[in-house]
């Protein structure tokens, strides 16, 4: 088991209830896309999975670590095994790319190594390898404020690749990237998860990206799970119902008319590859 949420509810300090009665389980190596209108609770759900927020109701178990994420040594160890791609890359502009990537392992490194790495980056080879996978190896020693928004987002992804977590969480990881790059990046995350048997949970704004690439789709609406289905069983009416609050148009990345059938084809290809 990778994680199990049981009847999880989350009420923020200001009284706003972001999540209600969420029950969601995932096995190791599963790849799940979260979709739903903005404000539905996707980010809150990811925050609970990332132990940033403790559920106010119900129980959450992440990577065999019990509920009640209190700040302890154990929690820090758990967090080192969870990697998050954030919506806006949380990287200081003055930091160099190499340091930003290496920071992914701060939870795993001994203190002396983290300190020494501020003076001289201690794993240039590792950082370069991670950056190569997002096509940014040439920016290794550049400063982050010299990068474009899309490049910075990929540095954030390289950091997670470098961290090598068992659970990868991605909060709208590609909303700042152009469609081609977005697709490539999603595929990279999936390949990474596949290669290491890690679980991947990504919230996505574009429905077609989700259905075309993920095997399991979880629809979130008003803090609840609206549906939890294999990609092949998602229907257009189901999606229209999910996005009812945002009008008639479904949010998609590229306006390709038959993305559902394309998803089915993908599914077939995957199955063929499996057997």
């Amino acid at each position: 088991m990778s994680f199990a949420l049981n009847g999880v509810g989350l009420t923020h300090a200001n009284g706003f209830t972001a999540l209600r009665e969420i029950t969601l389980k995932a096995e190791k190596g599963e790849r799940i896309a979260l979709i739903g209108p903005s404000g539905a609770g996707k980010t809150s759900l990811l925050s609970v999975l990332g132990t940033a927020l403790a559920p106010t109701v119900g129980t959450a178990e992440v990577l065999d670590f019990g509920q009640n994420f209190r700040l302890t040594v154990e929690l820090a160890k758990l967090r080192a095994r969870i990697g998050t791609v954030h919506q806006a890359p949380p990287i200081p502009g003055r930091q160099r790319v190499v340091t930003a990537v290496l920071a992914g392992k701060l939870g795993q490194w001994p203190a002396w190594k983290s300190l020494a790495s501020l003076l001289y980056p201690l794993d240039v080879v590792g950082a370069r390898a991670a950056l190569e996978r997002v096509d940014l190896a040439d920016k290794l020693f550049a400063r982050c404020d010299q990068l474009s928004g899309g490049q910075l987002q990929r540095v954030g992804i390289a950091r997670v690749l470098y961290q090598q977590p068992e659970l990868i969480l991605a909060d709208e990881p590609v909303s700042a990237l152009d469609p081609t790059l977005a697709l490539a990046t999603i595929r990279l995350l999936i390949a990474e998860a596949e290669a290491r048997g890690a679980t991947l949970v990504a919230s996505l704004h574009a429905v077609d990206l989700a259905i075309g690439n993920f095997s399991r789709i979880v629809g979130v609406k008003a803090g609840r799970i609206a549906f939890d289905l294999p990609a092949s069983e998602i229907t257009v009416p189901l999606l229209h119902d999910l996005y009812a609050s945002e009008g008639d148009e479904l949010p998609v990345q590229a306006h390709e008319p038959h993305f559902l059938s394309q998803a089915a084809a993908n599914e077939a290809a995957t199955r063929a590859a499996c057997c």
């Binding site: 990332g50 132990t51 940033a52 929690l75 820090a76 160890k77 758990l78 967090r79 080192a80 095994r81 969870i82 990697g83 998050t84 954030h86 806006a88 949380p90 990287i91 200081p92 502009g93 003055r94 930091q95 340091t99 920071a103 992914g104 392992k105 701060l106 939870g107 795993q108 203190a111 983290s114 300190l115 501020l118 961290q163 977590p165």
Partner: peptide, 24 residues
């Protein structure tokens, strides 16, 4: 955000500060 993100990868408080908050 940078410091918080580093807390979430399990960095001890001091290092989340050194790598995340201080450069900002």
């Amino acid at each position: 955000a940078p410091g918080q993100a580093l807390h979430l990868v399990g960095a001890p408080g001091g290092f989340a500060f050194l790598y995340g908050t201080l450069p900002g």
